[in-house]
Design a protein around this nucleic acid. Sequence first.
RNA 1: GCGGAUAUAGUUUAGUGGCAGAACGCGAGGUUGUGGUCCUUGUAGCGGGGGUUCGAUUCCCUCUUUCCGCU
Length: 385
Amino acid sequence: MAFNITHKDKKTNARVGILQTKSGAIETPFFMPVATKATTKFINSQQLEEMKIKAVISNAFILSLRPGKEVIKKVGDLGKFMNFSGVNFTDSGGFQMYSEYLYLKSDDSGVWFKNPISGETIFMTPEKNMDIQLDIGADVAMCLDTMPLYGQSKKDILQAVERTVAWAERCKKEHDRLQKKVPQKRRQLLFSISQGGIYSDLRKHCVEQLLKYDFDGFAIGGVALPEQLYGGNIEDVKKQEQEIIRVHKKIVPENKICYLMGEGDPLWMLDAIALGVDCFDSRFPTQSARRGSLLTWQGKLKILNKQYTFDQKPIDKNCKCFACKNYTRSYIRHLLKEDEAVGKELASYHNLFFMNELIEKAKEAIKKKKFSVFKNKIEKIFSKK
RNA sequence: GCGGAUAUAGUUUAGUGGCAGAACGCGAGGUUGUGGUCCUUGUAGCGGGGGUUCGAUUCCCUCUUUCCGCU
């Protein structure tokens, strides 16, 4: 069994568990920084290890464009390539159907992407995608899914669901076939991804179909999208997301790990943990760090604001991260304003350290069966302006 | 000293005899399976004086500014 639950919260569905991968075990819940091109932007793998980050997610499709899977395979696997001893996830590239920069078209057979480097057209299939992810040697691979684009009709979303399910089946078969001779202990895990937009019935239908196959984990895709946020009331979007998670959790067996893809807002993440979600990834902490939005135990701090020009305090006096131990708000603000790489590094380091600590504290709270108390405390911090 | 050109937002600049636009900067929000490159929004300007005109940032004169050339 790849996943075991070790602790359960009392009032919520939050739980702590252990996921076994070929690179070792990792305790859930956990948050993965995004490392699209085999690095978390501005943060090297030694820094990740220093702040006790146990997993990252790279992008198999984008890595296949450059440097190419052969380059990574040559040194063994992605972990060795980037010298990261933690758990490596790879995303399929399905999400890049959202990228005008990369996406051309798709049909039931697969997706056509353009290679922005060479200009050539690339035809991606579930089978090819599994081959790439296995060659890259991630610990956990994600199925190639198809994203319903924003504004599509329910009929279109149903079509995306059917395609996602069909592709998941093809991924699973190919993945099993390619790993037939690999010993259990050294096998790559494969997670499915469900779609269905905001429609509970479509989500239910999608997950029910995916459950026919023995995936190692079941991810929820298509949430935390900017398009949805721009759509209107944030609270409505939050309720929709929670409803999607509830539907998912109601159907998927408890002993299957649940991965909410793309979610990285601290509060939304805690809400998801309360519903029984086990793992997350998001560009949010790193991207917003580069743009001057910092997470602190006093709430959000916009370090580019004028008021921090002369501020000699650290980002967060309660934070023990490298950036907070050594540098002032004034200095980091200056570096970010000047677009200096070190500024982005320090800000990213801080935000990732915060996210990791937030998750660690969440785990402790679950173990003590007091998760909702903890969640309320964090909500108070981030709700005040 | 003479001649020519020039003057528009903090900066670089469009433009017009009747509402002066932009970019960058600056201020404030946003940011969610990453294109280090993003989005939204706010702020702010016709060098001074005189003339022509219903009306001048625009045309004329003058002063000043800056630049170029000549002696």
